[in-house]
Design a protein around this nucleic acid. Structure first.
Length: 777
DNA sequence: CAGTGAGCGAGCTTCCGCTTGACTT
C-alpha cells in the first residue's frame, strides 16, 4: 500500500521532490499532458456545443497504465502539476482518466522546488479549479479550430502539407514584413565629422583628444563648407562636465532571454540552447529551463548573497527582486538559475559548461550592486560656426555587477569614443591634427535571428516558453523560412578631410549588408502570408493572441462561459473559411517579368510544383514552355527579367571527362554537376554554375571519389550490395539502399558477411514491429 | 533526397502546449 502518491509533470522534478518528502510519499511524473484532442473530425463536436473528444496520446499510454496501477494501491493522490492554466488542465485530465474520487484527491501547487515551498503546499491542498481548466480547454480548442481549418485551405489554394496557426503564422508575418522593409529600404548617406586634436597642458605635456560633431551634414558640399571653416580656426575647450551615472544588472534568465543571450554570446541556436539546458536540468545543475518568471526563491536569494560576499565582498551584494512585464506570463516556475550557487563551473561537455557559466554569471550579477560610472563630456567650440565638437568618455568608479556580467547590446555598434579622456581643462587651446567628414549610410531595420524573433513573439505575448524553439523549427520545416548567411555587397564611401590646412577627397570601399544566421522568408512563406492576410487578417493580427488571452482570463475568473467565447469566434471565422475556398484559383505568386528579346515570348515567375521557377512561353500555346528553378537567394518578389533570362542558359555542357559529358545545372537541391549518371553538388559560395570551368568540375569529381572511399570501412567481394560505412552517427551497414545500425558491442572492422546479415535481420524485425505500432495509432 | 514542370486521383498532410527519449546516415 502506498500512503501518498504525488504526481508531477517532470521526472527530474519528481526525483528532487521525493527527497524532500518523507518515506510515506511516492512521487511519479506524468510527462506533461497525457490526453489531447483526437485528430479525427477535428476532435471537436462542433454541432454539440464544441464538445471536445479527448484520447490518451499514443506515447503516454504506458505511463498512464503505470499510474492507474499505482493509484489503485494508494490512499491519497496529490496532483502537483504546475501552477498555471496548462498545469491545472493536466491535473484535471489525470483526475478524469485515473477516476480519482474527490475526497481522496488533493491538488497542490508550488512554484519553487525547495523544502519549505513543498511542505507549505502539502499543508494547503485545494480542489481542481474548473474555471481555469475551462480556460485551457478554450485555448486548446481555439488553436485546433484555427489550425485545422486554415491548413486545409492552404492545401487546396497553395500546396499540400502547408500549415497555419495562431502562433506560427504571426511569426512568418513578422519575417515577411521585415523582409519587405529591408528590400524596399533606400539607404541615404550623410556625412559625419570626426576630429583629432592635440594640445599641451600647463606643464608642456602633449596630449591628444578625439571628438565628433553630433549632428550629420546632409551632403559633401555642406561637409566641405564646414571643413573649410575649420582650416584656419583656433579651437578651444569651452566646457567640461562630469556626471555620475549608474547601471543596473539585468534580471535572471527566463527561457526567452536565455535563448537570446546564448545566441549572442555563445552562438547557439534556440533549439541547441534548449537541449543543452535540458541536460543541465537533468543533471541537477540548474532549475527548470522553460519559464517566463524572473522570480528567485528566498533560499536562492540568500545563497546568491552568500556566494557574492564570499567571492567579492559585502559591498558587491544587493538583493533584488524582479517583476515580469511580459504579457500573459504565468510564472509557474522560478527563473532559470543554478541550483547551487557555490558551483561556478560544472562537469560536462564544452557546450554544457559554457551555458552553465552564462546562467551562473547572469543570476549572480542580478543580485549584485549597480555599477557606478562617471561620464565626462568635453565641448570644443568652432569659431564662426554654431557646430560644436563633443568628446565623451566614461570611467567606471565602482564595477559592481560588471565584474562578472555584461548584457549583450543591440546589433547597432556604438561608435562614440568611450573610456578615459585625456586631462584637458576649460579654456584650453587645441590644434587639429586631422578633421574628416566620413560618408555614412543609413541602415534598414535588421532581419530577425531565431533569438530576436523569439524576443519579438514574447513581447507580443505569442507562444510560450515550451513552444518558442519548436515554432522556430516548424516555420523552417514548412519551407516558409530559411536560416542562412548572406554575403554583403561592396560600396564606395567618400571621405573628405583636412590636415595641415589642406583639403583632401578620397574614397574607400566598405562591405555592407552582411548577414549571419538570419531568417529569410522564402517565396512560399510570402505567398502563404499574403493569402492569409487577405482572408484572415484578424487571426494574423499582432494583437489577436493578446485579445483572446483576455477572454481566457475571464473564463478563468468564472465570468465568461468558454463555449460562448468559442462560438463567438468560430461562427464568423468559419464563414471566412468558406468564402476563401469559394474561388478555385490557385495562388502561385505569379509575376510577369516582360518579354524575351530573342523570341518575344512572355517571361513569368511563380511557384511551381517543385518550387519557385521562371517560365519562358505561354503554356496555353502549342509549343511547350521552358522552365528553370530560381537560384538560391533569388525570390519571386525581386527577380528581374535579365536574371530570369540567365536561368534559361542552364543546363549547359562545359566539356567532357573520361569520355562522358560534364553537365552543369540547377535542380531541386541546388546547383549540380552531372557526369556519367552521377550528380555532384557544387560548393556554395565558391562555385557559380554560370562560370564554372572544366578543371574545377574534374576537381569536384576527384574530391567526391576520395570522400566516398574514406566512408567505406569494409566491403565484401561476395556481395557488392553489402557495405560497412562510417557515417555521421557512427558506423553502419548499408544494404540494398537501406541502412542498419551496428550494435555498440560489435567492432565494425571485424564483422563478417554473416554477422552483417544477422544484424540486418534483427533490424528488419524491429522495423516491422514499429510499423505495427504506427498502424494502431 | 534526386536533378522534374502532362493529368488523374486515392490517401495523406495540419494546430498549440506540456513533457522526454528514440532516432537519424
Amino acid at each position: 500500500m502506498i500512503e501518498n502518491l504525488v504526481i508531477v509533470e517532470s521526472p527530474a522534478k519528481a526525483k528532487t521532490i521525493e527527497k524532500f518528502l518523507g518515506s510515506d510519499f511516492m512521487v511519479k511524473s506524468c510527462f506533461g499532458h497525457v490526453r489531447d484532442l483526437s485528430k479525427k473530425n477535428f476532435g471537436i463536436e462542433i454541432e454539440n456545443n464544441y464538445s471536445p473528444q479527448y484520447i490518451i496520446t499514443e506515447d503516454k499510454k504506458k505511463i498512464v497504465g503505470e499510474l492507474r496501477k499505482l493509484v489503485k494501491e494508494s490512499t491519497v493522490v496529490w496532483l502537483a502539476t504546475d501552477e498555471d492554466r496548462e498545469g491545472e488542465a493536466i491535473a484535471w485530465h489525470l483526475s478524469e482518466i485515473l477516476k480519482l474520487p474527490a475526497e481522496n484527491t488533493k491538488r497542490i501547487v508550488f512554484h519553487e522546488i525547495t523544502k519549505d515551498a513543498i511542505r507549505k503546499a502539502v499543508d494547503n491542498p485545494r480542489g481542481i479549479n474548473k474555471d481555469l481548466v475551462n480556460a485551457q480547454q478554450a485555448r486548446r480548442i481555439l488553436d485546433r479550430l484555427v489550425g485545422f481549418e486554415l491548413s486545409p485551405v492552404l492545401w487546396k489554394k497553395i500546396q499540400p502539407k502547408l500549415s497555419a496557426g495562431r502562433v506560427q503564422s504571426v511569426a512568418v508575418r513578422l519575417l515577411v514584413e521585415r523582409e519587405r522593409e529591408v528590400l524596399h529600404f533606400k539607404p541615404e548617406s550623410k556625412f559625419k565629422v570626426y576630429g583629432t586634436f592635440s594640445f599641451s597642458d600647463n606643464n608642456g605635456k602633449k596630449g591628444e583628444l578625439k571628438a565628433e560633431i553630433p549632428d550629420r551634414f546632409p551632403g559633401p558640399d555642406e561637409a566641405k563648407e564646414f571643413l573649410n571653416l575649420c582650416k584656419d580656426a583656433d579651437f578651444k575647450v569651452v566646457d567640461i562636465t562630469t556626471k555620475p551615472s549608474r547601471k543596473s544588472p539585468a534580471p535572471p534568465f527566463t527561457t526567452s532571454t536565455l535563448q537570446q543571450e546564448a545566441s549572442k554570446k555563445l552562438g547557439f541556436s534556440v533549439s541547441q540552447t534548449m537541449s543543452v539546458a535540458q541536460k543541465l536540468y537533468e543533471a541537477g545543475f540548474i532549475t527548470y529551463m522553460r519559464t517566463d518568471s524572473f522570480n528567485l526563491s528566498g533560499l536562492a536569494l540568500a545563497s546568491a548573497r552568500k556566494t557574492i560576499i564570499e567571492k567579492f565582498g559585502e559591498k558587491y551584494a544587493k538583493t533584488r527582486k524582479y517583476k515580469t512585464k511580459v504579457k500573459g506570463a504565468q510564472e509557474a516556475h522560478e527563473a532559470v538559475r543554478p541550483t547551487y550557487f557555490q558551483n561556478n563551473t560544472i562537469n560536462g561537455n564544452h557546450s554544457e559548461q559554457r551555458l552553465y557559466e552564462l546562467i551562473w554569471k547572469r543570476t549572480i550579477a542580478s543580485q549584485m550592486s549597480e555599477a557606478q560610472l562617471e561620464k565626462t563630456t568635453v565641448t570644443i567650440d568652432v569659431p564662426n560656426s554654431d557646430k560644436k565638437f563633443i568628446a565623451s568618455g566614461e570611467v567606471i568608479k565602482f564595477d559592481g555587477f560588471l565584474k562578472i556580467y555584461m548584457e549583450s547590446g543591440n546589433d547597432k555598434s556604438d561608435d562614440s569614443a568611450k573610456g578615459l579622456l585625456p586631462p584637458v581643462s576649460a579654456g584650453q587651446s587645441l590644434n587639429y591634427e586631422t578633421i574628416s567628414a566620413n560618408e555614412r549610410f543609413s541602415t534598414s531595420p535588421p532581419r530577425y535571428t531565431e533569438a530576436s524573433l523569439v524576443k519579438k513573439l514574447e513581447e507580443l505575448g505569442i507562444g510560450r516558453p515550451s513552444t518558442y524553439a519548436p515554432t522556430i523549427s516548424t516555420i523552417q520545416q514548412r519551407g516558409y523560412v530559411l536560416k542562412e548567411d548572406r554575403p554583403g555587397f561592396n560600396r564606395t564611401v567618400r571621405i573628405i578631410s583636412i590636415s595641415e590646412g589642406k583639403l583632401e577627397e578620397k574614397t574607400k570601399t566598405e562591405t555592407a549588408g552582411t548577414e549571419k544566421k538570419k531568417l529569410f522568408p522564402k517565396d512560399i512563406g510570402m505567398v502563404v502570408n499574403d493569402f492569409l492576410l487577405e482572408h484572415f487578417r484578424d487571426v494574423l493580427d499582432y494583437n489577436f493572441t493578446a485579445s483572446v488571452e483576455k477572454e481566457f482570463d475571464e473564463i478563468a475568473a468564472g465570468k465568461l462561459d468558454w463555449t460562448e467565447m468559442i462560438d463567438n469566434f468560430y461562427k464568423p471565422f468559419h464563414v471566412k473559411v468558406e468564402k476563401s475556398l469559394a474561388d478555385s484559383i490557385k495562388k502561385t505568386g505569379e509575376r510577369q517579368l516582360g518579354k524575351d528579346p530573342e523570341t518575344g515570348k512572355p517571361v513569368t515567375v511563380k511557384i511551381g510544383k517543385y518550387g519557385p521557377m521562371v517560365q519562358l512561353g505561354d503554356s496555353n500555346k502549342d509549343e511547350k514552355p521552358r522552365f528553370a528553378s530560381l537560384m538560391k537567394g533569388q525570390i519571386i518578389e525581386t527577380i528581374t527579367l535579365e536574371e530570369a533570362l540567365e536561368l534559361f542558359k542552364l543546363p549547359r555542357t562545359i566539356g567532357d571527362f573520361e569520355g562522358k559529358d560534364l553537365v552543369i545545372g540547377v535542380g531541386r537541391y541546388g546547383p549540380y554537376l552531372r557526369h556519367d549518371g552521377k550528380f555532384f553538388s557544387l560548393m556554395k559560395g565558391t562555385d557559380d554554375p554560370m562560370t564554372i570551368i572544366k578543371s574545377r568540375a574534374i576537381e569536384l569529381i576527384d574530391e567526391n571519389r576520395k570522400i566516398e572511399n574514406k566512408r567505406v570501412i569494409k566491403n565484401f567481394s561476395a556481395d557488392p550490395d553489402m557495405k560497412v560505412l562510417s557515417g555521421r552517427y557512427g558506423p553502419y551497414i548499408s544494404y540494398k539502399k537501406k541502412n542498419f545500425r551496428i550494435p555498440r558491442k560489435k567492432d565494425p572492422e571485424s564483422l563478417t558477411y554473416d554477422d552483417c546479415m544477422k544484424i540486418i535481420e534483427e533490424g528488419q524485425k524491429k522495423e516491422r514491429q514499429k510499423a505495427k505500432g504506427k498502424r494502431q495509432k
